[in-house]
Simulated assay, not measured.
Amino acid sequence: MTSDDSAPVAAPTRQRLATSVRDRISAGVLEPGTRLSERELCEDFDVSRTVVRETLRQLEAEGFLTIEPNRGAVVVTVSYADAEQMFELRESLEALACSLFAKRGTVEHKQALWEVIDGIEAAIDDGDLNAIIDAKAAFYDVLLLGAGNEQLTSTLRLLRVRINLLRRYSLSLPERHPETLAEIRAIRDAIIAGDVDGARRAGEHHVQQAARAALPRIFEELYRP
Rank of each mutant, 00 (worst) to 15 (best):
K110Q: 13
E175K: 11
D46Q: 14
D46N: 15
E84G: 05
E31Q: 09
E40A: 10
T153S: 13
A202H: 10
S37T: 07
G203M: 02
G148F: 01
A202V: 06
R53F: 06
L152Y: 11
D23Q: 14
M86H: 06
E150A: 10
L222I: 00
R168C: 14
E220D: 12
A95M: 10
V142I: 12
R176W: 11
D23N: 12
L159S: 05
L145F: 08
A193Y: 15
I117M: 09
E150S: 07
T155H: 14
N164V: 00
T155W: 11
R104Q: 15
E84F: 03
V116G: 00
E175F: 09
I191S: 02
L96Y: 11
L17W: 06
E62T: 06
A27P: 02
Q111C: 06
G105L: 01
A73T: 06
L89K: 07
P32G: 09
A147W: 03
F45Y: 15
Q209P: 00
L17Y: 05
N149V: 07
D125E: 09
N164K: 06
F101G: 04
R162S: 09
D141S: 12
S172Y: 08
R39T: 07
A137I: 12
V51A: 08
L129F: 07
D118S: 15
P174Q: 11
E68D: 11
G105H: 00
I132S: 03
R35W: 07
G194E: 05
Y80G: 12
H109T: 02
M1K: 06
G28P: 05
E183A: 07
D82A: 03
A202I: 05
W114R: 13
P225H: 09
R24S: 04
G72W: 03
L65Q: 05
T34L: 12
V78C: 09
M1W: 01
C42H: 10
A213I: 01
T153N: 15
G119A: 15
R157W: 08
A210P: 05
A102R: 01
A97M: 02
L181A: 15
D118H: 10
V29K: 08
L129A: 03
P8S: 05
S154L: 13
T2M: 12
G194Q: 08
L171W: 13
R200L: 12
D4M: 14
E115Q: 12
V76W: 01
K103Q: 11
N149L: 02
L30Q: 02
L113H: 00
